[in-house]
Amino acid sequence: MKILSISDIVVPELSDRFDGRRFDGIDLILSCGDIPPEYLACIREQLNVPLYYVRGNHDIRYKNSPPAGCVNIHQRCIAFKRFRIMGLEGSRWYNGGPIQYREYQMRQMIWRMMPGLWLNGGVDIVVTHAPPRHVHDAEDCCHRGFESFLKLISRFKPRYFIHGHIHAHFTDSSQRVTLVGNTHVINTFGFHLLEVDHGQAD
Rank of each mutant, 00 (worst) to 15 (best):
L47G: 10
S65A: 09
H134P: 01
A138S: 11
R76E: 14
W111V: 07
F191M: 01
K2I: 02
Y94A: 11
P98L: 03
E89A: 11
G33Q: 01
Y39I: 15
G90H: 06
P132F: 05
N182P: 03
L51N: 05
H143G: 07
I125K: 06
I26C: 02
G87V: 01
I110A: 02
D24V: 01
D124N: 14
H136W: 06
M113V: 08
Y39M: 05
N72G: 02
Y160V: 09
E38S: 14
T128A: 05
G121P: 10
R107N: 14
H163W: 14
L4Y: 10
N57Y: 11
V177A: 13
I110K: 08
N187W: 10
F146V: 06
T188Y: 02
M106R: 15
V135M: 04
D8K: 03
I99L: 13
G69M: 10
D16K: 10
I26R: 03
Q200M: 12
I125Q: 08
I99A: 08
S91H: 02
E195A: 06
S173L: 09
Y160C: 08
G56W: 00
I35R: 00
R22N: 11
R84Y: 13
D8I: 02
Y101A: 02
K151W: 12
H129G: 03
K157P: 01
W111C: 11
L179Y: 06
V177G: 11
F161K: 01
W111H: 12
D34E: 12
E139R: 12
G69P: 14
V180I: 15
N95G: 06
F23D: 05
P50H: 04
R55H: 01
T128W: 06
H198M: 11
T183C: 11
L88V: 15
N95W: 15
R144D: 02
R107S: 14
D19C: 05
P115T: 08
A138E: 14
L40D: 05
